[in-house]
Amino acid sequence: KFNKELSVAGREIVTLPNLNDPQKKAFIFSLWDDPSQSANLLAEAKKLNDAQAPK
């Protein structure tokens, strides 16, 4: 279960257009550290992506 959630969340995070590479890497490392938090980490990444969207 975690492997699928981890890969789905990881793929989504790397495609978020408004995150820079260090931010993406930080989220990916957090996913590896605790795969059970993949849904929460993906939600946080999406929030940050939205907040950094060009206005």
Rank of each mutant, 00 (worst) to 15 (best):
E5I: 12
N3C: 15
E44N: 04
A9N: 05
F29T: 13
Q23N: 02
W32D: 05
T15F: 10
S36G: 09
W32N: 07
N49K: 00
S36V: 04
D21E: 14
K1G: 12
F2I: 11
P54Y: 11
L41K: 04
P54L: 11
N3A: 11
N3P: 11
K4Q: 11
A26F: 14
N49F: 02
S38T: 12
L42F: 03
Q52I: 04
A53N: 07
Q52F: 05
E5N: 10
K47A: 13
I13G: 00
L16N: 02
E5F: 11
P54W: 05
V8I: 13
W32C: 13
F2N: 08
K4M: 11
Q23R: 01
L41M: 04
K55V: 15
D34T: 08
A9M: 09
K25T: 10
F29L: 15
I28K: 03
P22Y: 15
I13E: 03
S36L: 06
D34R: 04
P17F: 03
P22V: 14
A39N: 09
Q52G: 04
A45F: 01
A43C: 10
K55R: 07
A39P: 05
T15A: 15
A39E: 14
D34C: 12
L31A: 01
A39D: 10
V8A: 13
Q37H: 05
D50H: 07
I13W: 00
S36D: 07
F27E: 03
L41N: 03
N20A: 08
S30A: 14
L6R: 04
E12H: 06
L41I: 15
S38H: 12
N20Y: 06
F2Y: 11
L31M: 10
K24E: 02
F29S: 13
K46M: 09
A39H: 07
S38I: 13
F29I: 12
Q52Y: 04
E44A: 11
V14E: 13
S38D: 05
A51C: 11
S7N: 08
A45P: 01
D21G: 13
V8R: 10
S38C: 09
F27C: 05
F2D: 08
P17Q: 06
P22D: 15
I13P: 01
D21W: 15
L16D: 01
S30G: 08
N3R: 10
S30W: 14
L48D: 02
K55C: 14
F27Q: 00
Q52D: 03
K25P: 02
V14A: 08
N20T: 15
E5S: 12
A39K: 08
R11W: 15
A51L: 12
